[in-house]
Design a protein around this nucleic acid. Structure first.
Ligand SMILES: [Mn+2]
Ligand SMILES: [Mn+2]
Ligand SMILES: [Zn+2]
Ligand SMILES: [Zn+2]
Lengths: 142, 142
DNA sequence: ATTCTTATTGATAATTTTTGCAATAAGGAA
DNA sequence: TTCCTTATTGCAAAAATTATCAATAAGAAT
């Protein structure tokens, strides 16, 4: 809760405006994360805001580092409040998700930056695979 | 060129059919890779095939390991023929893309699999960042 | 070659996401 | 408070993507 005033400040300082729409979306994401645009819309439609505004606002918040966007199966986007940098493991079979600390990646990222000359955003990657339970299942049916 | 007969065999062996539409799309991707569905459609529309077929076929080929799908900016998908496992660095500013050998990731992936119990597809990730040229530009304007 | 099964396609509609533009309202200045 | 500037929204249309379903055709069997 104490983060909204700070975010508002930071937005105004950059010449952007703090609107009820933006606040509603931020609160929705504060309540539960990893939401698709449609799920965000469900949670804020009562305010009368448009779907177009949801899409625009999510992209705006992402571009300004306030939310993270992560890829779900098939390239669909999912959003959550920005916080400690982390990555995701998602099970292709059941969708189970595990968060990974970003630290594990730091060494590799640094090495890639050195090799390529790129400055990388090593933030919020999603790796797909099979969770332990679904590995068992796929063996069982084989 | 010699790979189409082999792919055809493999598809038929799995009970799928080899259609002119699938062949046309494979040839388009063989000619140049990293194509969006729209770009694939441009290259095959002469055959009379539908956009819906392009989307369906790309997803079909991906699900069967014949093409790779990678994420471009904003979660848009791009396709290329499956080949040596590799990853991408993409510049947020100019879109420049560099391919990375998968080997660089192996160690990290193995370690993550051990920690999490997940079996990971460490294939065809996309990392975003700024290429060397665009880093200079962003300094210049600052 | 003919028949038969059914995977695949085209046509169409539905859904999702993006875009253009005029009306609105945030928030700094007077 | 009132006025101004312009960032932001709503609305409506466009574009992109997915789903439905009957017609088609791949390819195995005869
Ligand atoms: Mn997350
Ligand atoms: Mn590639
Ligand atoms: Zn699972
Ligand atoms: Zn660049």
């Amino acid at each position: 809760m104490s983060c909204l005033p700070r975010l508002s400040q930071s937005l105004r300082a950059r010449g952007y405006r703090v609107t009820p729409q933006r606040l509603a979306i931020l609160e929705a994401l504060h309540h539960d994360g990893h939401l698709s645009p449609a799920q965000v819309y469900e949670r804020v439609r009562q305010t009368g805001m448009t779907e177009a505004t949801v899409y625009r606002t999510l992209e705006f918040l992402r571009a300004n580092g306030i939310v993270f966007a992560a890829q779900r199966e098939g390239g669909r986007l999912t959003y959550e409040l920005a916080g400690a940098s982390h990555h995701h493991l998602v099970c292709r079979a059941c969708g189970a998700q595990v968060d990974l600390e970003a630290a594990a990646f730091q060494e590799l990222i640094a090495s890639l930056e050195q090799q390529s000359g790129y400055r990388l955003e090593a933030s919020h990657l999603t790796l797909f695979g099979l969770c332990p339970a679904c590995q068992k299942d796929s063996k069982a049916q084989a």
